[in-house]
């Protein structure tokens, strides 16, 4: 395991990543470089960002790996992106989605 450790230095040994912001529903959300849009929203206490077609119920992350499509979100005007897969980029504008977004 020592080899693995020297190959994979701990966070303390690497430069701190510069956090940046994305905009969700008009307000800034902090992101660490490399985080997905879904992870950044979830980390900020935002648990849902779309409502379902039939019952208008809130949805956010569920499977976390791109399988369930619960986490669909609009990013920079592009609808029905899976928030759990898409990596956040500085200045991304993330908006909520209603009705499941079958219009992709």
């Amino acid at each position: 395991m020592t080899t693995a450790q020297s190959r994979e230095p701990s966070g303390a040994m690497r430069p701190d990543p510069e956090p940046f912001e994305i905009i969700f529903a008009g307000r800034p959300v902090p992101v660490l470089p490399g985080q997905t849009v879904g992870a950044a929203l979830h980390a900020s206490g935002i648990r849902s960002w779309r409502t379902t077609r039939e019952n208008g119920r809130p949805r956010g992350l569920f499977c976390g790996i791109g399988v369930c499509f619960d986490c669909l979100v609009t990013v920079n005007g592009d609808p029905s992106r899976r928030a759990c897969l898409i990596e956040a980029r500085p200045g991304d504008v993330v908006t909520t989605q209603e009705g499941g977004g079958h219009d992709a």
Partner: peptide, 14 residues
């Protein structure tokens, strides 16, 4: 289906 309920793998992936 309530937000905040994740699969175990989902929590792990996060």
């Amino acid at each position: 289906d309530l937000p905040g309920v994740l699969t175990a793998g989902g929590a792990q992936a996060l």
